[in-house]
Write a protein that binds this DNA or RNA. Structure first.
Lengths: 351, 351
DNA sequence: CGCACGCATCGAATCGATTCGAGACATGTG
DNA sequence: CACATGTCTCGAATCGATTCGATGCGTGCG
């Protein structure tokens, strides 16, 4: 179907009685063509049903595909997070402004789905998912001469966009501290590729951990808050927060505050608290991170830190474009803003 | 960067002392190459840092790009729907099995974002969003010789995967009817591109409407249930269902049952009912569609119809592959299953 | 021993455009 | 009128691979 019978630029040129070069100029607009000739070429194109130059041939000649790879995890889980979604939209905006397409690539931390990474045509790649410090996947791309942009991760040789989550978390933890909380538990994002979930005895600095997981916990320490417990989840999902809270809240000395590293996790914590009959924030304070709108939690609003997710995606796209234009990989950090809610209050006096 | 200095297959061949054809055979594996030669070529490739044949050149020669376009709306709104997400994952599975990449294309009903549709390299396109009967976008693709698969829509010349939503809805409406409900309102999916939202006086058959919107409402009629009112929303979102319910429930003769055309809409209706102090299902019965898991609605579970969303995506991918192999566009319909919940009960006796 | 056959390799054509430098022609200037 | 300038068009090389048919060579069979 696709192959047979489709007209080529050469066919059009022949019918219009001009050279292939002139026909090409007519379509690309990158050279002078007299109005009369242009008309003739366009008429010939219409007659042959020629719908523009073949993108593959054009790309080959130009040496660029006009496509940026967007690397994610399993889509259903990855995109369930509103933050990722907003980031993706921002990314699409920025890339769309340059007429660049997005090639969606699912590639896990263990190396699944690397086929496209190895073989697909792209001018740059943007990682929408965290990249572990030990992952080979970034090298796979740079070996191919493909520029890489990381969101919320770091890797030598790759550009990256981060948010100021450490200071944002520190400020938030400062509020928690100032309200008198002393038993503060943390519900963490995934620790590192392949690491188990659940309570983590030693949640100190760890070279192999995802940088943003590290940073958010480091922020808490920065405020002088030492978590009594850290529960590591498998991802930023409501269910995960729910499970974590069930564990953290059903013990003898339960925390007076739970700081979750994302709003979805915090939402899960809140649901668990409700189910256990705990009043929030009287019996338990809860904080999140991201600044996601969760109307269905009404009347509660999570005390959180707002991150510019859309902007992050946009900057990621612009960084990719800059690299393609020959720029050097750069690091960018975006500021965050505290978002007051209804789930953070003074520590219970009897605690 | 990308251009300069990268080794080509010809360079590798030269260094290995073989012809370009042999080098090509070594990488593609589609011809006999002696082990010794293979070794030599691979060694040369390693030495030059050659990471496999250029995908663009390969594609041009082969006449296929290995990419399938996936057309959606605005991503953040499109992917907020869990059904779409599961469909996307199924699609990714099927395409991944054939080593095909997914080019994500945002293209609205009004024709925005058509650049990529017109210019991007792809072997087929799958519409993840509904396609209105009057949209030109499908023609844009078929004119380019690109095969099109529609999910939940119909268009001449395009393959399509549908679910048996009409009969599924009819069965569900049958249950509502048998429980004695006589005042049944409907919260509908978007009507047609550009159509206003809100109460729709005449919600009868309409050529310009989205087919699946039509089908679900037709299903209700099939069961002998005549909706007292139809509220058209802007999309399958919780907020939209909430708004719709606020309107439907704050009138003198309020419905005893609201049939929403998606679970997210139904969730919004349920939240609105709770806020208005209505007991569900004692005062109001609610039904949905899709079979989405909404744990945060606990303890309620929407009475709904389960659709095989993942399977739908898989079949969409397989249909695309079949078309690329020269197959004829076909229509497929998938069965659905009733999912009992807690939100459907007998009509109030005083009604 | 001669012939046919199979395996490994190579040459050359091809996929469909873009682009650079050169040529043809018309116009404007001294 | 000669010459410089500018506008439009063309030819040919190129992007980087794939693939078909041909060739050379060693082996098994009659």
């Amino acid at each position: 179907m696709t192959r047979h019978g489709r007209a080529t630029l050469a066919d059009v040129a022949r019918l219009a009685g001009v050279s292939a070069s002139t026909a090409s100029l007519t379509f690309s607009g990158s050279g002078p063509v007299s109005p009369a000739t242009r008309e003739r070429v366009l008429a010939a194109a219409k007659e042959l049903g020629f719908s523009g130059p073949d993108p593959l041939a054009r790309s080959l000649r130009r040496g660029e595909s006009g496509v940026v790879g967007v690397i994610t995890n399993e889509l259903a889980s990855s995109f369930r997070d509103p933050v990722t979604l907003r980031t993706l939209d921002g990314l699409a905006d920025a890339l769309g402004a340059h007429d660049l397409g997005m090639l969606l690539i699912r590639a896990g931390e263990a190396g699944e789905g690397a086929d496209l990474i190895r073989r697909a045509a792209m001018d740059a790649a943007v990682f929408l998912r965290p990249v572990g410090p030990r992952e080979r996947v970034v090298d796979l791309l740079t070996d191919r001469g493909i520029n890489v942009v990381l969101l919320e991760s770091l890797f030598p040789g790759a550009a990256s966009i981060q948010i100021a989550d450490r200071t944002g978390m520190a400020e938030l933890a400062g509020r928690v501290r100032d309200l008198g909380h002393t038993r503060v538990a943390v519900v963490s994002l995934p620790w590192a590729p392949g690491e188990p979930t659940g309570l983590r005895p030693d949640a100190g600095p760890d070279e192999d951990a995802f940088p943003f997981t590290q940073r958010r916990i480091a922020g808490i320490h920065d405020a002088g808050v030492v978590p009594t417990q850290v529960y590591v989840t498998a991802g930023s999902l409501v269910e995960e927060g729910f499970e974590a809270a069930k564990v953290l809240l059903q013990q003898d000395e339960r925390p007076t505050a739970i700081m979750a590293c994302s709003d979805l996790l915090a939402a899960g914590v809140l649901l668990a608290a409700r189910e256990l009959g705990l009043a929030v924030p009287r019996d338990l304070s809860i904080t999140g991170f991201d600044g996601v709108d969760l109307p269905w939690l009404a009347p509660d609003v999570i005390d959180s830190v707002e991150q510019p997710a859309t902007r992050k995606g946009q900057l990621g796209g612009e960084a990719a474009v800059a690299l393609m234009a020959g720029g050097e990989p750069a690091h960018t950090e975006l500021a965050v803003v505290q978002r007051p809610g209804t789930t953070l209050g003074p520590a219970p006096s009897d605690a």
